[in-house]
Simulated assay, not measured.
Amino acid sequence: MDIERRLGRKRLVRWGSRTIDIDLLYYDRLCLHTAELHLPHPRIPERRFVLVPMTEIAPDWLHPQLHKTQTELLAACPDTGKVEKTALSFLP
């Protein structure tokens, strides 16, 4: 959250537009639930835009609570949105 603040994030409306949004999805196999952080991220199974790249880089990674691979989560994901690769350049 501090990184987001330093990068100028302003959150005016929950689920609304914001300049930056950094989510921590997994931290090894840690399961943690505090007021500020939930690990693994609770909405991973619902988000195709998370699961498509996760399946590309770690298809057999097991979700530490659901005990399903990223491939299995993607196959069961209710999100039908299109996910496209894009090239980003952070250099001027």
Rank of each mutant, 00 (worst) to 15 (best):
M1F: 02
R5C: 09
R5V: 10
R5D: 08
R6L: 15
R6G: 10
R6K: 15
R6A: 15
R6C: 14
L7I: 03
G8R: 10
G8Y: 06
R9N: 12
R9L: 13
K10C: 12
K10E: 12
K10G: 04
R11Q: 14
L12D: 03
L12Y: 02
L12H: 01
V13H: 02
R14V: 13
R14Q: 13
W15A: 13
W15G: 12
G16H: 01
G16A: 11
G16R: 05
G16N: 06
G16W: 01
S17H: 06
S17N: 09
S17M: 05
R18C: 05
T19M: 14
T19K: 15
D21I: 10
I22Y: 00
L24Q: 09
Y26T: 13
Y26K: 11
Y26G: 11
Y26V: 14
R29N: 15
R29V: 10
L30P: 00
L30E: 06
L30D: 04
C31M: 09
L32S: 09
L32A: 11
H33C: 15
H33V: 14
T34F: 03
A35W: 00
A35G: 04
E36M: 14
L37A: 08
H38E: 14
L39C: 13
L39P: 09
L39W: 06
L39R: 12
P40I: 14
P40K: 11
P40C: 13
H41V: 13
R43A: 13
R43K: 11
R43V: 09
R43T: 06
R43I: 07
I44W: 01
I44K: 07
P45L: 12
P45I: 12
P45M: 13
R48P: 02
R48M: 10
F49K: 08
V50N: 02
L51W: 01
L51P: 00
V52C: 04
V52Y: 00
V52F: 00
T55F: 03
E56W: 01
E56M: 09
E56P: 01
A58Q: 07
A58D: 06
P59C: 09
P59Y: 05
D60P: 00
D60L: 11
W61L: 15
W61I: 08
L62N: 05
H63L: 09
H63P: 08
H63I: 08
H63V: 10
P64N: 12
L66K: 12
H67S: 13
K68Q: 15
K68H: 05
T69A: 12
Q70P: 00
T71S: 14
E72S: 09
E72G: 06
E72K: 07
E72W: 01
L73H: 02
A75R: 06
A75E: 05
A75G: 02
A75I: 02
A76F: 00
A76N: 04
C77K: 07
P78K: 14
D79H: 01
D79V: 04
G81C: 08
V83N: 04
V83C: 05
E84H: 04
K85P: 03
K85T: 11
K85Q: 11
K85L: 14
T86R: 13
T86Y: 02
A87S: 08
S89C: 13
S89A: 07
F90A: 15
P92E: 15
